[in-house]
Amino acid sequence: MSKFITEHAPAITLWASALCTFAVYSILYKENKFYRFFEHVFLGLATGYSFYLTWSLVMKPRWWDVMVGKGVWAWAFAAVFGSMFYFMYSKKHAWISKLIFGLFMGLSAGGIFREFYEIYFPQLGATMRPLATNEVIAEGPWATTVYVAGVLLFYVILFSVISYFFFSFEQKGKMIKASSSLGRTFLMIGFGAIFGATVMGRMTLFIGRFNFLVNNWAPQVAADWHWFKYVLPILVIAAVAGIILALKKKPVETEEPPTE
């Protein structure tokens, strides 16, 4: 068995990848047992891998080896602190788990001053931009006009969008209402840009899987099995038949995965 695995590991990996790809895509047609089985396999593998990696790359070198190998016994207290998380399973003493969660939340929250200073202060600085600079003026009147128009447009978009997010008081005045409405319009441009980029990102992931099937799996199969080139047209015909069938049948609703 072990000899077989060692000798055929690349081929098994390739076939397993293709099998998993088809199994997951089968959900697009309808809910099925094949998909659910591989879903659980994935869950098991991901959990097992996390367990292995957390121990071998974090816990062992940074805790166990230091404590037992180098003799720094005080690291034993890390286990005591770590055990505090498990009090969440006790109804009576669940508050002890909140103690350690609170510590971690405090550590995260404490970074907010640095984050605000390092991330948003330079943003404020970059926002305060002059209408034109000497370099721009030196380039001529046309370049200056374009530059000034760009800066003005930037200010209009920025302030109108900020005004749209003023929830601290009721937007009563005509000026603030108009600005807020304009901000909402500009937000649509931002959302359009995000949507365009999102489509690109999601499509890339799908293309990645197809790239594997077309350029890794299929050539290997074609090289190993010469009859594959006869099977391929049958698969294409089956796909066309699938389209015709789908046209005749009512669509089957599948469970849509949560989006990010």
């Binding site: 790809t21 997951v24 959900i27 396999v41 994935f42 594997f212």
Partner: peptide, 15 residues
């Protein structure tokens, strides 16, 4: 063969 393929295919479903 399994974990990597299953995760990347699951993500690509969003497309």
């Amino acid at each position: 063969g399994f974990m990597n393929s299953l995760q990347s295919t699951t993500f690509s479903l969003i497309a």
